[in-house]
């Protein structure tokens, strides 16, 4: 069914490495700009254009693989852990680029590259890509928006997590205004993901909410970010405390994303598709 000329997981190592390489080159280009260069100077703008072009090229290579895999699988690659990691890497680079363009942090592209690289390496070494077919419960128009929206929010909140780490350990400047925007947009997408999941669950299983372990952890994650947003509105909590909350929230997010698969109490989850 799958011809030799099609894009399959066998080719991922080349696409993945090329994309990570381009992203790393973009990160280096961004880092090479000096803090003292004015934002309007020609050499600064040249560096910036180079960094943005290289990162965009990395995104294009990654997108080409995802689209090719989609065509060869004859279904969206969103089901196995390996497939969702693919989207995560893609969105991590995208979120890094977004943050770089918006706030001009020189180092953010390095962080997002590292994040994307980790998931590319996991996919090369331990792909978890078996099970080519799409089980009936997942055959729904909700499937693609539900998963991609979650992956996008995870990558934005991943960048917020990196900012929180920087804020906690370097103490250089205030990272929270930038983290705020990432958290607001990330939480908006987290809300889309959770609510589209609820609407879909009603259609597929009969109940909007059934305290399935994945749902429970999604709610934990959502409440953490809700708490952060409301604490920020008052401003009575220390920066350190807020950074710690963002780190805790991201750990809960990991629990929701893949941790539940290993949690003994969650073995009856209806959300585990790759056993």
């Amino acid at each position: 069914m799958i011809g030799n000329d099609m894009i399959t997981w066998k080719l991922f190592i080349w696409f993945g490495l090329a994309s990570v390489g381009l992203s790393a080159a973009g990160a280096v280009a961004a880092l090479c700009a000096d803090d003292h260069w004015s934002a309007s100077s020609l050499r600064y703008r040249r560096r910036r254009t180079l960094a943005v072009s290289l990162t965009s090229a990395a995104l294009a290579v990654f997108a080409a693989f995802i689209i090719g895999l989609w065509i060869s699988l004859e279904r969206p690659p969103l089901r196995t852990m390996g497939e969702t990691r693919l989207w995560y890497s893609f969105f991590a680079i995208l979120a890094g680029l977004f943050t770089y363009l918006r706030w001009r942090y020189r180092w953010i592209l390095s962080f997002s590259t590292v994040l994307a690289t980790v998931f590319v390496i996991i996919n090369i070494l331990r792909p978890e890509i078996h099970d080519q077919s799409l089980m009936p419960a997942l055959q729904s128009p909700w499937f693609i928006p539900h998963v991609t929206v979650y992956m996008f929010s995870y990558s934005l909140l991943g960048c917020a997590f990196l900012l929180a780490l920087v804020g906690l350990f370097s103490g250089k400047g205030d990272v929270l205004p930038a983290a705020d925007t990432l958290v607001y947009v990330g939480t908006a997408f987290l809300t889309f993901g959770m609510l589209s999941g609820a609407l879909w669950a009603k259609q597929a299983w009969g109940h909007y909410w059934s305290w399935d372990p994945k749902e429970t952890w999604a709610l934990v994650t959502w409440l953490c970010y809700l708490l952060y947003i409301h604490l920020r509105l008052v401003g009575r909590v220390s920066r350190r405390g807020l950074c710690l909350l963002l780190i805790f929230a991201f750990l809960c997010l990991q629990m929701c994303w893949w941790g539940v698969n290993y949690l003994p109490a969650a073995q009856d989850s209806v959300h585990v598709y790759n056993r």
Binding site: P177, Y184, A188, A198, L199
Partner: peptide, 24 residues
């Protein structure tokens, strides 16, 4: 009572869209 839940969910989706557009 599912219609109430659906109405609440739709309202929140609209609010989340505004959260994305408006930011902090």
């Amino acid at each position: 009572w599912k219609y109430g839940a659906a109405a609440g969910i739709v309202m929140m989706l609209a609010g989340a869209l505004m959260l994305f557009v408006g930011g902090p």
